[in-house]
Amino acid sequence: MAGLPDPMVPSPLRVQRVRRETYDTFTLELEPANGADGFSFAAGQFNMLYAFGVGEVPISISGDPTKPQTLVHTVRSVGAVTQAICKLKRGDVLGVRGPFGSHWPVEEAAGGDVVIVAGGIGLAPLRPVIYYLLSNREKYGRLALVYGARTLQDLLYNPELEKWRGHFDLAVEVTVDTAAASYRGNVGVVTTLIPRVQFDPLQTAVMVCGPEVMMRFTLRELEARGIGPENIFMSMERNMKCAVGFCGHCQFGPTFICKDGPVFRYDQIQAFFAKREV
């Protein structure tokens, strides 16, 4: 994988475009500042993004893995570093290290159904999967995207959601936790949509990303639908400083989220996932 030269030192990438997704979430398109090669990655991997002088955070890549010329990140402004990143304008420079970590099993899932369950900003690490699945549509059975957000104003990638809804061979179910009466879509937590999705429990890969509590509830619904833990994949989050297994922060039981994850097959972490304060 053609990443960046040094795993410890951020490389400068220039912001080409900033898209405002919601009131607090922005999508940045980056290109190498020095006109170097593209940025290959696998769906589910992340980069360490460095806001000059402020600090560094792990952020999943949200772009199209088949278009490595542009590096795309969707960032929610929640702390000092993400705030600084979200303030960047076209032409500004952002430090990038990566890509790091494991990826979603898009190739292994070929031949069966794929269900994507995303909560909140958790759709960002899964968007590369959707791109991949749609550009290799013939390899898969039924495809479904189940996406929940807090309110209508929190939904990411609205133009794309509309486009995806238009695909007859991709079932798109979107729900928000609360809405005003004028809203005509689904209201309710994301787990309420799972019983409605069509798939063959024995031939389905489910890919889940969202807040840990949402993922726990989702696992229960999937279990009720007869999906085995070996067919569920989830992306985990922990504090992370180095992304290469040296800093120790992202340990989750015996695993390191940065190098063994962030994408895990559920049965790999099942023993610790149910426990508290791991």
């Binding site: 909560g119 909140g120 807090r150 807040p211 509590v213 949402m214």
Partner: peptide, 10 residues
């Protein structure tokens, strides 16, 4: 009620 999307994941 847990309002899980309230800034838990970045």
């Amino acid at each position: 009620l847990l309002d899980v999307y309230d800034g838990v994941r970045s």
